[in-house]
């Protein structure tokens, strides 16, 4: 049996065919046993489905049921509305966040570098060697000691030539 004919039989059974065409199909069913058998099977199937289809009844009216769904959808969407409502604040914070983060990172970097480089911390040192005295300075941060070596001729100022007369 052609598929077209099967569809036509199904439409006949569902009452979807025009009167003229329905009569033709009825004649066909009366003549063709295969068509009659298919219609019978379709009727049985529909009957079986209707028997098992339970009807669900809403405890409230259809309009009230859909209005509840609509309210729930509105309630779920509400937080998003709250989030986006202060758009100017969000935009301001986003604009502020990037430069502030960069500045904070810069400050932290400077602080770390400063703390890890003791020479930068002790920036207030100065020394003056008067004419005739060259110096070099050695700083031991771990020992907390600064050594200044003067090339000033010791025998001229701090000691005499005799060893036992040195310094005192």
């Amino acid at each position: 049996m052609k598929e077209e004919l099967q569809l036509k039989l199904q439409a006949y059974l569902d009452g979807e065919l025009p009167d003229g065409e329905a009569r033709d199909v009825a004649d066909l069913i009366a003549r063709d046993t295969g068509a009659a058998a298919l219609v019978t099977e379709l009727k049985n199937t529909r009957g079986a489905l209707k028997a098992f289809e339970s009807e669900i009844k809403l405890p409230e009216s259809r309009e009230f049921f859909w209005s509840k769904i609509e309210r729930e959808i509105g309630r779920v969407d509400k937080p998003q509305t709250v989030d986006s409502s202060p758009a100017w604040l969000s935009a301001f914070l986003r604009r502020f966040l990037a430069p502030a983060g960069a500045v904070a990172a810069l400050v932290i970097a400077v602080l770390l570098i400063t703390q890890q480089t003791p020479g930068l911390v002790v920036a207030s040192e100065s020394e003056t060697a008067f004419p005739g005295a060259d110096t070099f300075t050695y700083r031991d941060y771990a020992a907390g000691m600064t050594l200044v070596w003067l090339s000033y001729p010791a025998e001229n100022g701090f000691a005499d030539f005799a060893p036992d007369d040195t310094l005192n």
Partner: peptide, 27 residues
């Protein structure tokens, strides 16, 4: 020095416990 002439001058922070050593050659 022994003549009373200033031969060296240094300014620096000197927290408690730190040492500043001035030094030079002797005979």
């Amino acid at each position: 020095d022994k003549t009373g002439k200033a031969v060296f001058e240094r300014k620096q922070p000197l927290p408690k416990g730190e040492i500043l050593l001035l030094s030079g050659n002797a005979p």
